[in-house]
Design a protein around this nucleic acid. Structure first.
Lengths: 218, 218
DNA sequence: CGGCGGAACTTGACGCCGTTCAGATTCCTG
DNA sequence: CAGGAATCTGAACGGCGTCAAGTTCCGCCG
């Protein structure tokens, strides 16, 4: 295993990682945080644990981040980046407007399922990030995903593949509905006995939502 | 103001509140937690702060709750109870199936707006409650809301006010979509400059979602 | 009425947390 | 090679969740 330092590479000239200086601690901290969340969940994400995992003292992170919240915000921002890449990739494999919307929706929910804890942090209420507003890069990246959706809807309408209407309205409805499925699937809204008895699954919820959306738009 | 002890009443024979024993600490703790969340947010919710607010020592809560998580779970459960009452009340003022669905949706989103922190705890990812499954009363109450929705959909279909179909499918789509709006409205998905520029508001998202849902069902 | 058992509560402690700060170490520039 | 800037350490502060041991009070049995 060894340290995490080699997971990301050094910025320019590869400093010797055994020196007093780490060389690329900022990146190593983010990677350590990501790994920590991935296998210990949100609860296990402490700044001290991140520092331990990166092999530095507990105070070292403060030379690269203003606070724990700032580190989490960056983790979060990268999550939105990944999410955007995934929906983008899924979309490009489809051709018509409705197909693209469906592909993006599936990719969105799949992301929430594959990386539930990261997804939980990204949309984690006021738990870890009291207010996203100060983290401009974070909100910009997050908004980028919505703009991508908005573009797909607009183009679909222009191409006559989606019924003409207000693209913003359609994009908002789609985002809200799909996000709802992802959130419920991720934090246990579907995972209790009664729901199981009813035959409720995230897949079914997604299909139901897609059917409703497409009925109004395709 | 005074202590919180008088907020709920004593169980049987009104004990003098100044004695060594509190008299009705469990209820007082829940009330203190509720108040704390209401005016300090999720971040300010610590077991010690709850105890302080109730005027007891830091260890006192452990005679009434197994852990902080257990207290939060009860808080949470009452949140679902309130939510259910609100959607129920809103529903009863409407007559036809579609009207009832719309009324419930509005009440749901209004709840998230009125009590954002409580709503955040109820659906708070893995932040405060690692796993809801052990808290049976909690999951039961939460599921009750969905069953209520399912009933309304079924009755609407039986009365011919909603297009015939699988009630579960429709209820799932409606819940997911409306929940999505509530979540996005609550944790800042709509509250950034770019979204404002686009003219995005929770109300608009809700209207968009409702239009899509009703189109497929009314 | 006396005292006894147990429930309710307090005190004090442990380890972990986020954060700060003085000082040690190393890198880079001149 | 000198000195300032960047980086990292070690120790500390207060707050947190939790637990063990001690204290106070209540109702019940004799």
């Amino acid at each position: 295993m060894g340290h995490d330092t080699d997971a990301v590479g050094y910025p320019e000239r590869m400093g010797d990682r055994d020196g007093y200086h780490h060389g690329n601690l900022k990146e190593a901290l983010i990677e350590a945080a990501r790994a920590l969340v991935a296998d210990s969940g949100v609860q296990g994400l402490s700044l001290r644990a991140v520092a331990r995992r990166a092999g530095v003292s507990q105070a070292a992170p403060y030379h690269h981040f203003d606070s724990k919240e700032a580190l989490v915000a960056e983790l979060c921002r990268r999550g939105f980046e990944t999410l955007s890449q995934r929906t983008c990739a899924a979309m490009e494999e489809a051709t018509t407007g409705p197909e693209r919307l469906v592909a993006m929706a599936r990719a969105y929910v799949a992301f929430a399922r594959d990386l539930p804890d990261l997804f939980g942090i990204m949309w984690g209420g006021k738990g870890l990030i009291a207010d996203k507003a100060p983290y401009v890069e974070l909100t910009d990246t997050a908004t980028g995903s919505f703009e991508q959706l908005l573009r797909v809807v607009s183009e679909g309408m222009a191409a006559g593949e989606l019924r003409a209407g207000d693209p913003l309205e359609v994009a908002l409805a789609a985002w809200s509905a799909v996000h709802g499925v992802a959130v419920l699937a991720q934090d246990g809204g579907f995972d209790n006995p009664k729901m199981q008895d009813l035959g409720v699954t995230p897949e079914r919820a997604l299909e139901a939502v897609l059917r409703a959306l497409l009925a109004g738009v395709a």
